[in-house]
Computed example of a mutant assay.
Amino acid sequence: MSTPVKGDGRSQRWQAHRTARRAEFVEAAVRAVEAVGPDASIADIAREAGVSKPVLYRYFADKAELHAEVGRWGAELVLDRVVSAVLAPATARARIDAGVAAYLDTIAEHPQTFLLLSTQHAGSADPLADGKQRAATKLARIIGSGLRQLGVDSAGAEPWAFGMVGMAVSVGQWWLDRRTMSRAAVADYLSGFIWHALSGAADEYGVPLSALDPPDNVRPLDPGRQA
């Protein structure tokens, strides 16, 4: 019986180095896009990273792959903040308000980057595709958990979650591009829409969404439970 061959330590170190360098270049891309705008070129990004374009292309096959990595970075940032907000112990309405506020605050911190991600993929792969899938899946688990706590059918959790993510991306793009309304006003409209959609669905089941409010339910919803 042959002895298993251990992994090459040099290969593992190189992979770790490559992963770290890609993360550095993604951060440089975000800085370049924020400084130059959504049309920032590979040359702009390489300059911000302090490397040449050929070096950048050693880590990313093309601009689309780099944009996809920026998309994952942006989606992770939004997801971490929104999930933290909506899982905090509070009333159902307060959780929705907090989640919307966290989303708008995050994209407002990096407006050019999120405009790039939401508008600059015509004719190519959507750089936010993976992030939207992950966000909707996580949101579906949270909604599904809440519906089950209410004792009603949770089958609608997934389509509702995907619908809300799509709406949030569209509203965010519109707001960043137009700026015809204050962040507070956009937050009120968006959270109000989501609240009325979810509370209306709960009312149809004969159980008000407020049944999830403290003190009867002081524990945050568990996203680990499958919808």
Rank of each mutant, 00 (worst) to 15 (best):
V26P: 02
R179N: 06
G146R: 01
D62P: 02
F60H: 07
S124N: 13
V30F: 02
M181E: 11
S199C: 09
L66W: 06
S52H: 09
L77H: 10
R148H: 07
A92F: 12
V169Q: 04
W14Y: 13
F114M: 06
F25S: 05
R141L: 00
E34W: 00
N217H: 13
T19Q: 15
A125P: 11
D216H: 12
T106F: 05
V82T: 09
R31W: 00
D97Y: 04
P220W: 01
L147A: 06
I45D: 01
R58W: 09
P159Y: 00
M164H: 11
R219G: 09
N217G: 06
G50E: 04
L56S: 02
E109R: 13
G166R: 12
V152I: 10
L190P: 02
F25G: 03
V152E: 04
S2C: 11
I143D: 00
S210H: 06
E48Y: 02
E65T: 14
L128N: 03
S210K: 08
I142K: 02
A68L: 12
W175A: 01
G37D: 07
Y205T: 11
P214M: 02
V30Y: 01
E34D: 12
E34T: 08
L190C: 08
R72L: 10
R219M: 07
V30T: 03
V86K: 01
S182L: 07
Y57E: 05
A40K: 01
A227G: 09
A197D: 09
L198C: 06
K138S: 09
K53T: 14
R81N: 10
E158N: 09
E69F: 14
P214W: 01
Q149E: 14
P4L: 12
D8W: 04
A16N: 12
R93E: 11
K138G: 03
T3M: 13
V83R: 15
I107M: 05
R93W: 01
P38M: 05
A32H: 01
V51D: 04
R183E: 08
P127D: 06
R141A: 03
S52A: 12
R21L: 15
M1P: 14
E204Q: 12
P214S: 03
L190A: 13
R93T: 07
A187W: 01
R225N: 10
S52L: 03
Y59P: 03
I42L: 15
V5F: 14
T3Y: 13
I107Q: 02
A98R: 05
I42P: 05
K6W: 14
E76V: 12
V78W: 06
D105G: 13
Q12G: 04
A43I: 11
P223G: 00
A29K: 02
L56V: 03
A136M: 07
K63R: 14
W175L: 02
Q226H: 12
G144D: 00
A92P: 05
P89G: 05
V51Q: 06
H17C: 10
V86E: 00
R22L: 12
L150W: 11
N217D: 09
E48R: 08
G71T: 03
L212K: 00
G172W: 00
A28I: 07
T119G: 07
A49T: 09
S154N: 10
V218S: 14
